[in-house]
């Protein structure tokens, strides 16, 4: 509904297929279901660096012009 109101919104989720069905447009596969922006297997410092990377991908997604809904590659 945020996108419907004209504000670009990136969705970080482990459940990308669900996000697609639900009508999200800028979808990024991230983390696990219980912590889409976390990775507790890493040390706190490494986890922070990883999370910054995920957030940067999300920012790139909101800055990317789209024609239709897209799952951004998890590179």
């Amino acid at each position: 509904m945020i996108e419907k109101n004209g504000v670009p919104a990136a969705l970080l989720t482990a459940m990308t297929s669900m996000a697609m069905v639900a009508g999200a447009n800028r979808i990024l596969s991230s983390g696990l279901i219980p912590h889409p922006a976390g990775d507790p297997t890493r040390s706190p410092d490494e986890e922070f660096v990883w999370r910054k990377g995920q957030v940067l991908k999300a920012l790139n997604a909101v800055a990317t012009p789209l024609e239709e809904a897209q799952i951004f590659a998890d590179w």
Partner: peptide, 26 residues
């Protein structure tokens, strides 16, 4: 309810001058 809440949040964000959003979902 999901659509209503999303719409309400969107309108609040717009009135506060937000340009883009990062949403996290489980």
């Amino acid at each position: 309810h999901g659509e209503r809440m999303g719409d309400e949040i969107a309108k609040q964000l717009i009135s506060d001058g937000v340009h883009a959003v990062i949403v996290t979902s489980t």
